[in-house]
Design a binder for these strands. Structure first.
Lengths: 144, 144
DNA sequence: CTATATGCAAATGCTTTGCATATCC
DNA sequence: GGATATGCAAAGCATTTGCATATAG
């Protein structure tokens, strides 16, 4: 799989090592539909190898985030969540500040804003890291 | 101030009490430009009355949130933040992922995206809470 | 008076860190 | 062989909770 090759290269470039733990975390991230907490990822890794520590999972996820393999963000409930950047079509997220629901939106909807910000501010919007806060349909109808 | 009257009435309706602590938290919220953490709010209250406990601040902010005086939300970094509902920031932020520079942009530039997201997803973008990640002009010219 | 609110201290839940040991290159 | 990673246990940090006391109405 291309992710693994990417990871191996990125690790080599930095003099870092390919360990079974890192392979397992990467593998497990492919099985997860959307995003997951470190606990969830750890639980899945544990099925493959029970000795792997939660702290290792955290360290690995942080590493992957730096390597740009994973995006990491916090939901409204405060849980930090992680997902593979490559697995899905390019998208950004809407985060409901009330219920914490996270939904994905194709980056095509962002294109106009991206051009706008580049034209007026020379700012290159990183669309896949964008999390837009607001109130989702369910919550706003509940309140209204 | 009108907020205070609103608070008093809301408290009365529920058989709750008007305490100095609640008054101070409400007062302090007016001094804060945008939004603040519980710690920041507590620090300001402490200047008025050092004995007030952080837990009381949390309880008060939760209460105000229920009373709809305050909006409470978590930023993407996970910090929970609070702000008076009556105060609105006229801008959102661009955050450079390389140098960390934070710049402000008028919400008028966001309007098209906001309408777009509302039309297609019924999602109410909270513009003043938005922080857009990317690469600023300085950094991208430096890299190029 | 008496129910509600507070301060204090301890508990919680997620995440990070220090360190000795194990492991990859 | 020597630096990098890991597991373990303990520390951090923001937030919440239990409880006796203080206080608003």
């Amino acid at each position: 799989m291309c992710c693994e090759a990417t990871m191996i290269q990125a690790l080599r470039e930095r003099g870092m090592r390919l360990t079974p733990q890192r392979e397992m975390v990467l593998h497990v991230l492919h099985e997860i539909p959307n995003d997951a907490t470190a606990e969830e990822i750890h639980a899945r890794v544990s099925r493959l190898s029970p000795a792997v520590d939660l702290s290792t999972v955290y360290r690995t996820l942080d590493l992957f985030t730096e390597l740009n393999l994973v995006s990491s963000f916090k939901q409204a409930d405060g849980d930090q969540r992680f997902e593979l950047l490559t697995i899905h079509a390019p998208h950004f997220h809407l985060l409901c500040q009330q219920c914490g629901e996270l939904s994905s939106v194709s980056i095509s909807e962002l294109q106009p804003l991206a051009s706008q910000l580049f034209q007026t501010h020379r700012f290159e919007l990183k669309m896949e890291h964008l999390i837009i806060p607001g109130i989702c349909a369910k919550c706003s109808s509940r309140t209204a």
